[in-house]
Amino acid sequence: MSLTAHIRSHRKPRRSASTIAMRAGVASGVLGTLAVATAAGTANAAEPVTQTLELPVLTGDLAAQVAQSAQATQQAAANYQLQAERDAASAAAAKEAKKDLAHAKAEAKQKAEAARKAAAERATRAAERTTLTTASSSSSDSTSSSTATGSAAAVIAFVKAQIGDAYVSGGTGPNSWDCSGLMQTAFKQVGVDLPRVSQDQSTFGTQVSLDNLLPGDILYWGSAGSAYHVAVYVGDGMFVGAQNPSTGVAEKPLSYDPPTGAVRVL
């Protein structure tokens, strides 16, 4: 036997080709992984960092309370507005009522004064009528009849007693008259039934000249049959009639408003 037969060799054993290839593949994989990780880190380092703040989330109860509070505030504002409008309306109504009360008091005072004057005038006229009626019956008052006698004197006494009465369209007495209403009532005192309106009165009786007038004649203005006003001649160039709302029943001279014609019924 050789002396060197049992001496181990100091050479490293040879690696097989498959082992070498496997080790190369592992190393390649490790290096690839490191490269990917390094690239990712570099990319992340290049991107800016964005910080996100999370707002508190309202819970259901808190949201309901907020809504109720807003609704209550709105209702309170509406109530204040309504109350302000009511207060303004009340103040305006009170002011208007005060004004109306003052006006009513003033009007009532005026009416009371007018009624007092009217009553005094009626009392005066009633006394005058009594005096004139007595004078006409006894024929002792030549001034009131103005030389008229009989029925004419009675008619004149009646119309003169109404002097101062009011003129009212359609009035037939006892304290307000229109022109034909006064004539109809005056002549009724002596039994003469005159038509109601001035147009018919202007053709009732006998037409007479204005130069030949006698007390008691009926004067008319406008043409016969379409006269618009009538009065009675009382003598001495004077007539009495219910003239208009301004003068009422008044005694005027013929020159005040010259008549158109005249009729005689007595």
Rank of each mutant, 00 (worst) to 15 (best):
V197N: 06
S169R: 00
K12E: 10
T143W: 15
Q110R: 11
S136E: 11
K109Q: 07
A166F: 04
P13T: 14
R23D: 01
S209I: 09
R86D: 13
L62H: 13
Q184N: 11
L132P: 01
G32T: 11
K98Q: 12
V36Y: 13
W221H: 01
S139A: 15
T124Q: 14
G25T: 07
S151D: 10
I163Q: 09
A43P: 15
A92R: 04
E251Q: 13
G164M: 10
A24K: 02
S145L: 06
A46R: 04
S209L: 10
G241E: 02
D200W: 00
T19I: 03
L194K: 01
G164R: 03
A40I: 11
R264S: 07
S202H: 02
T172G: 00
S246P: 02
A92V: 04
A91D: 01
P56M: 03
K160G: 04
P259W: 00
G60M: 09
T143I: 14
A250I: 13
S16R: 00
S169G: 08
S137M: 07
D217F: 07
R14I: 04
A119G: 12
A45Y: 12
E128K: 10
M183C: 08
A27C: 07
Q162F: 00
E54I: 13
R14Y: 13
D193K: 12
T38V: 01
A24D: 06
S255A: 02
S16P: 03
L62Y: 13
S202Q: 07
S140C: 12
P253D: 00
I218E: 01
A102H: 10
S255Q: 12
A161V: 03
